[in-house]
């Protein structure tokens, strides 16, 4: 992890080894100056998220990014677990709970892919906004600044060149979080 990193990407993908979009996105994030990536499923295969360690770690960053694919219109289970045990009372909200105040919360999500995408004809940007609403409310409760989400649609990424463009766009988006 880069000691001078200002941005922490929490990557939650239970099957990264089979994924097409998220590995190049994660690699682009790694390569972006000032960005550190934490692979949640690799760090906590037993779902035992280390709350004190995570909380201590968060203090060092200005921007927090949650990167994940939609699983049943929501974040994968381990990311929810992470939110449940790390954003606790007294740390993230409530009495004296202002440790995340003024930090940025951003989401980088992918939509569509497979049968679901064909049946629903994909999700519009507005749909994604609705699905991210719980996270937006979480950010508000914690006094965090909500960033415009970074969205990639599986159907748009038909070839390597498109993937490369998406990765570059992600890197730019990460770099622009502070501004």
């Amino acid at each position: 992890m880069d000691g001078t990193a200002r941005t922490l990407v929490i990557l939650a993908h239970p099957a990264l080894e089979q994924a097409r979009i998220h590995p190049p996105l994660a690699a682009a994030a790694e390569a972006t100056p000032g960005v550190a990536v934490r692979d949640l499923y690799e760090t906590y295969p037993d779902f035992a998220v280390d709350a004190p360690a995570e909380q201590a770690d968060l203090a060092g960053y200005d921007h927090l990014v949650l990167q994940f694919p939609f699983y049943w219109y929501a974040a994968p289970a381990l990311l929810k677990e992470w939110l449940d045990v790390v954003l606790t009372h007294g740390f993230a909200y409530g009495d004296k709970g202002e440790r995340l105040r003024c930090k940025t919360l951003g989401c980088a999500v992918s939509t569509g892919g497979g049968a679901l995408a064909r049946q629903t004809e994909g999700l519009t940007a507005k749909d994604v906004g609705l699905l991210l609403r719980p996270l937006e409310l979480t950010a508000r409760l914690c006094g965090m600044r909500w960033a415009e989400p970074f969205i990639v649609r599986d159907a748009d990424l038909t070839d390597q060149a498109a993937l490369k463009r998406a990765a570059a766009a992600y890197s730019d988006w990460l770099g622009g979080l502070g501004r």
Binding site: A51, P52, D84, V85, L87, T88, H89, G90, F91, Y93, G94, D95, T138, L141
Partner: peptide
């Protein structure tokens, strides 16, 4: 870890 009130539900958060 127990005292961190992990898994405390956030809905009652307004009421400290």
């Amino acid at each position: 870890d127990l005292q961190l009130q992990t898994h405390a539900h956030v809905l009652g958060a307004d009421d400290d």
